[in-house]
Every structure is written in C-alpha cells, then in structure tokens.
Nucleic acid binder design. Sequence first.
DNA 1: TGCTATATTTTCGAAAACGAACATTGGCGT
DNA 2: ACGCCAATGTTCGTTTTCGAAAATATAGCA
Lengths: 252, 252
Amino acid sequence: MNQTQRHEKIVALIKLHGFMSIDDLVSACEVTPQTIRRDLNQLAESGVVSRYHGGAGLNRSWENTPYQERKTQNREVKEKIAEAVAGMIPNGASLFINIGTTTELIATKLLNHKNLHVVTNNIHVATILSAKEDFSVIIAAGEVRYRDGGIIGEATCDFISQFRMDYGIIGISGISSDGALLDFDFREVKVSQAILEHTQHVILAADYSKFERRAMVEQGHISQVDCLVCDKVPPPSISEIIKENNITFVKA
Amino acid sequence: MNQTQRHEKIVALIKLHGFMSIDDLVSACEVTPQTIRRDLNQLAESGVVSRYHGGAGLNRSWENTPYQERKTQNREVKEKIAEAVAGMIPNGASLFINIGTTTELIATKLLNHKNLHVVTNNIHVATILSAKEDFSVIIAAGEVRYRDGGIIGEATCDFISQFRMDYGIIGISGISSDGALLDFDFREVKVSQAILEHTQHVILAADYSKFERRAMVEQGHISQVDCLVCDKVPPPSISEIIKENNITFVKA
DNA sequence: TGCTATATTTTCGAAAACGAACATTGGCGT
DNA sequence: ACGCCAATGTTCGTTTTCGAAAATATAGCA
C-alpha cells in the first residue's frame, strides 16, 4: 500500500469512526506507529483531520457549517423544549415531524418511545428514528436541501396530504407580534401548511428567540396551533392571542 | 455544576464532536484534568463512551450494528469497484442510485463530480450527496427500513417511475449461475425493477462474492444490465451471458 | 551497477498523560 | 457543632506517546 492510499484509508477510517487511535491505525494499515504519526501530522497540517494525543479525530472545521452551528445555538434551552414535547407524545401515536434543529432534537428524545408511526420531511429525523426497529418511519419525497437536510417541493406536499396523523410537530423560523408564523423558504412553508391541515393536534416548538426574529414568508397563524412549547412566557401580544384561541401553553 | 450534570455534558459534547480531548473538556467544564479523567473512566466503565489516551470518543459498540459490519466487509474490493463506477459517470449526468453498501460507497466517490442530478431511495446516499451544493438530490418517498436506510414500498416505485435518467447504479444481493439477479426483500425488488425500466444505462456494481450467494426473490436478469463492474472476471456461465448480450464488463 | 530521492523503520530522550495516594472542600444527618 | 461521606483538587512517580535523527528499504534513472 502506497502512502497516498494509506492517507486515504486513514481519512476514511477517521470519518467512519470519528476517532482512531495510533494503535488502531497501526493494525489497520500494518505499519509502524511512527509512520502513522507522520501521516497524521501531515493530514493535520493540511487540515483534513484533527490531531490529538494518542490518535486523530474528525476535523474541527467540519463543525462550523452554518447548520451545525445553529444546532448548538441555545442547545440547553432547545433540549428542555424537546424533552417537554417528547413527553406529550404517547406510545403508538402517529406524528408528522418537519424541518428544524429543534424538531431534530425532539426526534432524539423520542427514541425511548415505542411503536411510533412517523412521517417526516427531514432526512436527519428519518435517519435518527430509523434506528428503532419498532418504529415505522416514512419519509416524504422531494429535493433534499443541502444546508439542513430538509425535503421540500410540490411532491413533498402531495405526499404529506395522503396522511392524517395524531400529532404534528413543527418548528418555525420566526413569530411576528401579531401571531403570524414566519419562515425563509416558501417551499418549506407549503409543506408546513400541508402538515397543519392533516393533523389532529399541532404542537409548535419554539424557543423564545423566535419571537424576536423576522422572516419573509408567512406560513400561517399561531391560532392554527393547538399547543405551544417554549422556554419562557411569550410577549404579551402573543399571550393574548394564545388565550383567545384556547391554545395550550407549555413552559419547558 | 454537579457530577451528574457534568457527565451528561461530557457525553453530549462527545456525541456532538465525535472526540474530545481532556483539555477541551477541562475548559468546557472548568474542572481539573484529574476530575475529567475520573469522569471519563467512569463513563467508559459503564460503556457510554470509549476511552483513549488524551481524551474519549464515541462508543465502539455503535459500529457493531449488522449493517455497519456489512459495510466494512470486503471494503477494499468495494472501494475499487466504487471508484471504477464513479469514473464512468460524467459531470452533469442524471442518475438513480439504489440501496446497498456498495452503492453508498459509490456515492462518496461521486463527491468530486459536479452538477449531478441524483434520485435515490437510500437515505444514506441522500445524506452524503446533499452535502454538495451543486448537486440536486431527490429522495423517493416511502417507509425507511431500519437496518440499512433503504426506502421501499409502492409509493417509492410510483415516484421513481416519474423520472427517466441517464444512469442507474444498482447493487444486488446475489446472482445465480443462469444470470438471474436475486434479492431478499420483494419490496426492494419492485423498486429496482422500476429503476431498470427508467434508465438509459444500467450499471450493476457487484463484488465477486455475489456470484456465490443465494437469495430468494428474483429481481430480473443480468441481460437487462448495460454494464457490469466487478473485482474479478465472473464465472464462465455468467461470462457467456455477458458476451451474448453485449454487456460491457469492467474489472475494477 | 551505482546514485539519488522518497518512504519507512529504528532508536532514544523529552514531554504529556496516567493513576494512586493524600489533602481539601462542601453538603448532610445526628 | 460534630463527624461522615462523596466530590474535587493537589502532588508525584510511572507509563505512554511524541518527535527528531539516524539507519534501512524501495523505486526511479543515468
């Protein structure tokens, strides 16, 4: 095996496992620890992997995709919201889960449930939940958006419209003070609307920062929602709308 | 922050990053290296993470799903086949990619191409390829099979039948000596048939072990294929069929 | 063949990480 | 207040890993 080939192999192994110790790589490549060290140093130099004492792991820069960053924003808060939402879903229920970092977190919290029937247009949610043998996970068709793994488009809407589920879990980009639900991509909005229309109980998961964010496309109105889960009590204008429409508010 | 909270935080960080060095965790948790060491040893003891010199990484047991194991079987051979197949695809082409460990590997080798249009029923392929901004990745709808991330079912076939692509890349479970293509799941077979029917050039990627494997469901016949990529020359009976049908054979 | 460049192994002292033992802190119940 | 116990910090000798340098192997070329 050539040096270049070995480098490729090492990178592949690290990408597969997340981390490889020197010893692991020694037995995988059948060369001396020193050679592996030299390889790792070179690969680290060129920025392909991150060097650590005893081995090497995934490159740090990979974390810095905008999407991954968003994922760590407000993580503590989002986790609490996610747990609260997961607690509202009974075993055996059928549910929609749409695009969003929060909804993805909710998916991980649902892994201890049993016999859920899930329809989603989020490829990451599908991957997470398909690990459970007793879940039936159905993914919508459409174009996969590269930045967040969301599936959008007309085909997606048509597909979703075939179902009628117990729960719909949706995230949102922003909520304006008059209660309008806002998003950035009109194709995603269509999908969300389809979910809203084909669901018994709609649960909106939104951390407080969403009340201060503007977005371009109107997705619907908070009055279409049955339950709002948030980390803080929303601003007065929203609170009033919630009361008027008998929306359950859950503070995580 | 108490010990339990810190442990949770450590596990979360490791799951997020794949690997954390002692130093990283020290600055993240603001405790002594020794405390982190103690924590990591406890967590490693209870099997939550894997301990390494200088830090800790994701648990090894995660790799041992049957699917992940299959993925590393014959890896060297499959990589060569994958590279050969990827080399046959021109930039800007449209292609189907179906379920299979080999096809997944092919997807990773396609990452250096430009402007591909891909339709797939493999959730892992979709995840891999959606990382490229200039690709359009379309995923089929249907139920996600937990063991390999394949999407199958009637809806999947209908969806695929809407397209007409340049290339179809398919894997296979087994090939019998009379040239029949075999698989284990009849729902998957339907999808493969749909792909065969809606593709200009069908490329079959199969390592030699497939010629010795039996499977239950007949998916089609090797004569439907335009090109076979394999690591060795197939057995005589197959070679004859290949010649008779003018199938291109590529040895990786 | 002999020369040169590159890749790899071997060797070895320095630096880092390790674990064990001991000291300190901060609840918690009596 | 007192002692108890678990968690954390501190110290120190030991083990592991590191990287530089020298020795060896491999390949290409005159």
